[in-house]
Structures are given as C-alpha cells and as structure tokens.
Computed example of a mutant assay.
Amino acid sequence: MPYGPFLVLELANNCSLDFMQEHGTVHPQHYAFLVSEPEFDEIFARIRARGVPYWADPRHRQPSTINTNDGGRGLYWEDADGHNLEIITVPYGGS
C-alpha cells in the first residue's frame, strides 16, 4: 500500500518494509531478519534450491556454511542489487 513516497510491505510481526523509488545510485545496505527455526529451514532450502551463494559471515569469507552465533543459526547472501541480506534465529547477543 502506498504511503507518501513509500510502497509499504506489511509483515506478519507488525513490522513493514518500506520501499521508495530512487533515481540516483543506490548504495548496498545490510538487512537482517530474525526468523524462527522452521522459517530458517524454509528460507535456507530456497537459497540452496536456487543455487544462491551464501556465507556464514558478513564479509563473505566463509562460503557455503552457516554460523551458530549466539546459540542460533545464521547466514548471509546478496540480493540482485548487492544488498547483504541476513537471517538469524536468535537476536544478536543471545536470547
């Protein structure tokens, strides 16, 4: 639903992703998503099925592996625009 200059994507957990058309250079950003264990498995399965490269770390030095930081699981991948996307099952610093 449009809201001012943004296209708002409402998420199930009372959060939203707000998109805005930009005509200049878009600089890559980092987006982290806290997901449940079953959601992690579903997302990870789609990443592997599509052959998308993924890493255990934000600097992409540990390819094709996941991390177990803070007692959970996490991984990083890039979207088509070079944004560094991350899914984690435990908040930073632990639960």
Rank of each mutant, 00 (worst) to 15 (best):
R61E: 11
Q21F: 06
Q29D: 10
G24P: 02
F40M: 08
F33L: 12
N84P: 01
G72T: 04
P58L: 00
T65F: 05
L85H: 11
P53R: 07
Y3M: 15
P91M: 06
N69H: 12
E39N: 12
V35R: 06
A49I: 00
Y54F: 15
R50Y: 00
F33A: 08
R61G: 07
F40R: 03
S95W: 02
G93M: 08
R50T: 00
V35C: 11
R48E: 15
I47W: 01
E37M: 06
G51D: 00
I88A: 07
F33R: 03
P38Q: 02
A49P: 01
M1W: 13
C15W: 12
I47C: 07
E39R: 15
F19M: 13
G94A: 06
I66Q: 03
E22H: 11
P5Q: 04
L17E: 08
V90N: 03
A12I: 05
W77G: 05
Y92P: 05
A12W: 08
F44H: 15
E22C: 04
G4K: 12
M1Q: 14
H27L: 13
C15P: 00
H27K: 11
A56W: 02
L75K: 06
Q62D: 08
W55S: 14
F6V: 09
T89R: 04
N69T: 04
T89H: 00
R59M: 07
A32D: 13
V26Y: 03
G71R: 08
N84W: 08
G71S: 05
G4W: 10
V52T: 15
G72L: 05
H30T: 09
Y92D: 09
L85Q: 13
A32E: 12
I87K: 06
G24Y: 01
V26N: 11
V35S: 10
G24D: 13
G93R: 13
V90P: 02
L9G: 11
W55R: 05
I88C: 10
N14Q: 15
M20N: 03
D57Y: 03
Y31D: 01
V52P: 10
F6N: 15
F33I: 01
N14C: 11
C15N: 13
A45H: 04
G94L: 00
N14G: 08
G51L: 01
V8C: 13
I66R: 01
P5C: 02
I87D: 02
L11S: 08
A32F: 04
W77M: 09
E86R: 02
A32T: 09
P53G: 01
L11P: 01
R46G: 02
T25K: 02
Q21M: 09
